[in-house]
Amino acid sequence: MTNGASDVNTCGLCGRPLDAGHYHEEENLGTRVEYQVIRIRGVLADSVAVHDPNDKHPLPSRVLAANLGVEAGSLLGLHYTCLVSRDPYGTTRSDYRLVEF
């Protein structure tokens, strides 16, 4: 497996090149869900959906921080959204965005 420079310029959702004309219609990709980071357990950040406490999303802190463009130490209490879609592999979350208050 290689991680070439070309991977940086491709869409993580469809694999096509990222350019000015590249876009996705969100309704075809899943549902945007808001989560709040409620706990840090070792290297994991535990998040729960704001509107459904049964929808829990643990993720490595450094991965979540990188997706949101923040420091891992500042994750606790943050709100973020991501696209959630059901697919043959289970549940896929993508397009993480920090919620600004």
Rank of each mutant, 00 (worst) to 15 (best):
P58T: 00
G4K: 08
V84F: 02
P88R: 07
D87T: 05
R16E: 13
A5M: 08
H24R: 03
L64I: 01
T2N: 13
S94V: 10
N67K: 14
G21W: 09
D95G: 04
G15Q: 09
N28E: 15
T10R: 15
E100S: 14
R41N: 14
A45P: 04
L68E: 08
N3G: 10
L64D: 00
Y89G: 08
V84W: 00
G77R: 02
H51Y: 06
D87S: 08
E100Q: 14
R62E: 13
I40P: 02
E71Q: 11
I40C: 07
V48Q: 02
S47R: 03
V8C: 09
R16L: 12
L13Q: 04
P53W: 02
V48I: 08
V50M: 10
R32E: 13
A65F: 00
R93I: 04
G90F: 12
G77Y: 01
L83Y: 04
V48R: 01
S6P: 00
D87M: 07
L44M: 15
L76I: 01
H51T: 14
L13V: 05
L76G: 00
V70N: 04
E26I: 10
G12T: 09
N54L: 12
H22C: 12
R41G: 06
A45Q: 05
L75C: 08
L98G: 07
L44R: 06
G12D: 12
C82L: 09
Y96C: 06
L78T: 08
N28H: 12
E100F: 09
P88T: 10
C11P: 00
R86S: 12
A5L: 13
N28Y: 14
T81A: 06
G30A: 03
R41C: 08
L18H: 05
R97C: 14
G15S: 08
D46R: 15
D19A: 11
T92L: 02
H79F: 10
E27P: 07
P58Q: 00
